[in-house]
Computed example of a mutant assay.
Amino acid sequence: MAAKRAPQDVPIRDDSIRLGQFLKLAGLVDTGADAKDAVAFGAVSVNGETETRRGRQLVVGDVVALGEEQARVASGDADDVDVPW
């Protein structure tokens, strides 16, 4: 089994963010509907544990994985970061 890629740091503006919002911000899904489905089907993990609550609050340092992609919640202003999307 291939190792997952290192997580990409994705800055958030506040102290926390909901899982569904973070999935979109990180580019792991395209829409809120995609986020809802991925979480409902158990395809998303947070810190290595399967998460089925789309509204789960994430804080800086949490690592979210969907398939081989991973993103880590980072502090900072998302407007100041050059993102590819």
Rank of each mutant, 00 (worst) to 15 (best):
Q21N: 15
Q21Y: 13
F22R: 00
F22W: 01
F22Y: 02
F22G: 01
F22M: 01
F22L: 05
L23D: 08
L23C: 07
L23G: 08
L23Y: 06
L23W: 01
A26G: 06
A26H: 05
G27T: 02
D30Q: 10
T31A: 08
T31N: 13
T31P: 00
G32W: 02
G32Q: 08
A35Q: 01
A35C: 09
A35K: 05
A35L: 11
K36W: 00
K36L: 04
D37W: 07
D37E: 15
A38K: 12
A38G: 02
F41H: 14
F41I: 04
F41Q: 13
G42A: 03
A43K: 14
V44K: 04
V44P: 03
V46H: 06
V46T: 07
N47C: 07
N47L: 09
N47I: 08
E49V: 14
E49Q: 15
E49H: 13
E49W: 12
E49N: 02
T50L: 05
T50V: 14
T50P: 15
E51R: 10
E51Y: 09
E51S: 11
R53T: 12
R54C: 00
R54D: 00
G55R: 00
G55P: 00
R56E: 04
R56C: 08
Q57A: 15
L58C: 11
L58A: 05
L58M: 11
V59E: 13
V59H: 10
V60Y: 09
G61W: 07
G61M: 03
D62C: 08
D62F: 04
D62H: 00
D62L: 09
V63N: 06
V64C: 04
A65V: 06
A65L: 07
A65S: 11
L66C: 02
G67D: 10
G67A: 01
G67Y: 04
E68K: 15
E68P: 13
E68W: 09
E68V: 11
E68N: 14
E69A: 15
Q70Y: 03
A71R: 05
A71T: 12
A71W: 15
R72S: 03
A74K: 01
A74D: 06
A74H: 01
